[in-house]
């Protein structure tokens, strides 16, 4: 009887691992395939589609960098994401803090109003948003794109940060006010440092979304010189005679920073996600 039981659990363990390994392979192999592909020689690419490059060809990277003008694309992406965070973080921290820790008229109404954004599935109002940006002269402008994306990230950010502000003990500001701080310096000097983890989550999560943003960027950035990385990579498809290793090199160049950031900040990525989706 006991034997049968252990045999059964051994079989289920093996089956479970088989399924897990299958999903690990289909998740990781395409990425490895991309990196291997980027290091292959154009002429022998078809002879060795699957495996390890016989001798790594680094010049694919130089070719991709030049052909796709990836330096400019990188810079544009950094500008859009940087300005986006510079706008979003102070705006969201101030609003979330005030809603979480102060009493004033219409507080509840203002909070509910700011959360309306959570009711609009992403992208559904993309074309009207583009129309507004067009009217305001923000189209074809990197800073314009940052501002629009920041506006759209407010609901989620206020929702996320408020939950963290609420969790801090009530007496903190009182102590600071007695010590002679004014309201704003109590917030900036005492409270903000305490929610650093939440701010990190907002940076990683919203920053990543903006770094990878494609839909609105595609509508708003029309000139080649202003395109961001996701838009720039598109240039490598659809041209059937070009060399694939170079295309894989371009994909790797645009993905590698994300893989590195992810490996360094996995915790923020994963907690950010669970906090954002289940807290509240």
């Amino acid at each position: 009887m006991k034997n049968r039981h252990t045999a059964k659990s051994a079989i289920s363990t093996i089956l479970i691992w088989a399924v897990l390994i299958f999903f690990l392979v289909i998740t990781i192999y395409p990425v490895i395939w991309m990196i291997f592909g980027s290091l292959k020689d154009t002429s022998t690419f078809y002879l060795n589609i699957w495996g390890f490059p016989s001798e790594p060809v680094w010049k694919n990277y130089i070719g991709a960098w030049q052909y796709g003008d990836l330096g400019t694309k990188y810079l544009n992406t950094i500008i859009v994401t940087g300005v986006f965070l510079l706008i979003l973080l102070p705006v969201n921290c101030c609003a979330a803090y005030t809603i979480a820790r102060m009493n004033f008229r219409f507080k509840k109404a203002i909070y509910t109003f700011l959360l309306i954004g959570l009711m609009i599935p992403g992208g559904v109002l993309g074309m009207p948003t583009y129309s507004v940006a067009l009217k305001l002269g923000l189209v074809n402008n990197l800073i314009g794109l940052s501002i629009v994306l920041a506006g759209q990230a407010i609901s989620f950010g206020v929702f996320l940060l408020r939950a963290f502000f609420v969790s801090l003990p009530k007496s903190l500001e009182e102590a600071a006010l007695i010590d002679g701080c004014n309201r704003f310096s109590a917030f900036a000097k005492i409270i903000l440092p305490l929610i650093k983890p939440a701010i990190m989550i907002q940076i990683v999560f919203s920053g990543l979304n903006t770094w990878n943003e494609y839909f609105l960027s595609n509508l708003m950035l029309r000139t080649d010189a202003l395109k961001t990385l996701p838009l720039g990579v598109i240039k490598f498809i659809g041209e059937y005679s070009t060399d694939y290793p170079q295309m894989f090199a371009a994909l790797t160049i645009s993905t590698l920073p994300m893989i590195i950031v992810y490996i360094l900040a996995q915790k923020q990525f994963i907690t950010g996600l669970t906090a954002g989706a289940t807290k509240g």
Partner: peptide, 28 residues
């Protein structure tokens, strides 16, 4: 002290109205 909270939430409200609320009305 009385206007402080409103000043703190104002930037968020303005940005939010401009790029989340107004697209709906302007789109319509």
């Amino acid at each position: 002290d009385r206007v402080f909270p409103y000043l703190m939430v104002l930037p968020a409200i303005v940005l939010f109205i401009m790029f989340v609320i107004s697209p709906f009305f302007y789109g319509f």
